[in-house]
Design a binder for these strands. Structure first.
Length: 362
DNA sequence: TTTGCCGGGTT
DNA sequence: AACCCGGCAAA
């Protein structure tokens, strides 16, 4: 499964991510890239904010498909903690995406299985999983949870998974254990709202994402690394645009985005789907039309046509066919046969007029 | 495919 | 009415 193309794509995606990140405000991103948070998770932004770590994450992602062992950038015999962590995170990411088949394209297709920006209701549903750990940051967890992304499929949730909420505000890597906590954080710190009131217009939802810590991912990720389970891939048509090469633009529209997706990312899924759809819409009529119109030179399978040509009756009036009334063809030779086409003038008028021969009647 | 000729149109 | 022809169906 894994191929070099994946690496190219990942690098591309990474660049694209950075570009998009630079060009859009958070508001826009969240609006037009509902899965932005997932995207971020994939590219593992470190709380330290070191650019090289981002690069490293991308690099790791790139090399992941070919050889996991290459992962250690320092090539030290024992994996140092940072690299190990990245590796762990990568595994988690790949594990999550491997359920949908192709690994690399999943990076773009994350949009498919995952929910867009974390809805509040969702958070509420999950918050019971969290122990009341207070609202403040747990740095250790922060260090190890960037790659988890929200997983809409509940069955993948395991006991070993822990849901955290990460602030997506620029240069803010705050991770809290409760949704209310992160909302309050965003409200007070970033939105400048009063901390006393619990009033929320829901805007905070745009600025944080839900992340999961998967303790099993380290081991499971290895076995799932080369996805043998091809795509159960969820709803194919849903193809939101986190990765499209949006050349920014102020007048960006959803239509524009969508139209970009098939071209840039995959010529397979969406376009294929479109074709299939049109084909289906097409085929029915076409076949029937053919059946109806091509009545002419059919010879064998007359019976088949008889059945198929139910529609034919609509076009050729029943009176015309009147199957019983047509007189059986006479055995006698006719003018045409006797004189031939070259002596057509010798035919009887009826024959010339394509009528029943009057000269050689039966 | 060829042949016979019905049904219908045109002149 | 004479003429023509599309097209069906049998051979």
């Amino acid at each position: 499964m894994p191929h070099g193309d994946n690496s190219i794509f990942k690098i591309f995606s990474y660049n694209l991510w950075r570009q998009t990140k630079a060009q859009f405000g958070k508001r826009e991103r969240d609006r037009f890239f509902p899965l932005w948070s997932v995207f971020i998770c994939v590219f593992c932004r470190k709380p330290s904010g070191h650019a090289d770590k981002e690069v490293m994450a991308a690099t790791v992602l790139s090399s992941l498909s070919t050889s996991p062992l290459v992962l250690n950038p320092s090539s030290a015999p024992t994996v140092p903690e940072p690299a190990n962590r990245v590796w762990k995170e990568v595994l988690s990411a790949s594990y999550s995406s491997s359920t949908s088949g192709n690994w690399s394209w999943d990076a773009s297709d994350q949009s498919v299985p995952s929910t867009p920006s974390p809805p509040l209701s969702n958070d509420n549903n999950k918050s019971f999983l969290l122990s009341s750990q207070g609202d403040d940051v747990n740095e250790d967890i922060t260090e190890s949870t960037h790659f988890m992304f929200e997983d809409p499929i509940p069955r993948k949730r395991k006991n070993s998974m822990k849901v955290m909420f990460k602030c997506l505000w620029k240069n803010c890597e705050k991770v809290l254990s409760t949704s209310s906590g992160i909302q309050r954080h965003i409200r007070t710190v970033h939105l400048g709202r009063n901390c006393d009131s619990d009033y929320s217009d829901g805007e905070e939802d745009f600025y944080y994402t839900e992340i999961e810590v998967n303790m099993d991912s380290l081991t499971e990720g290895l076995s799932n690394l080369t996805p043998t389970s091809p795509t159960t891939a969820g709803p194919p048509p849903v193809f939101p645009p986190p990765l499209i090469n949006v050349p920014h633009s102020e007048h960006i529209s959803m239509n524009g985005l969508q139209s970009h997706v098939p071209t840039l990312l995959s010529q397979s899924a969406p376009s294929t789907l479109c074709h299939i759809r049109t084909d289906h819409a097409y085929q029915g009529p076409v076949t029937s039309v053919r059946t109806v119109n091509i009545g002419e030179k059919r010879q064998p399978a007359a019976s088949t046509h008889a059945t198929v040509n139910k529609n034919h009756a609509l076009i050729t009036p029943a009176s015309k066919s009147t199957p019983g009334t047509r007189k059986p063809r006479g055995e006698a030779k006719k003018c045409r046969k006797v004189y031939g086409m070259e002596k057509r003038d010798m035919w009887c008028t009826a024959c010339r007029w394509k009528k029943a021969c009057q000269r050689f009647t039966d």
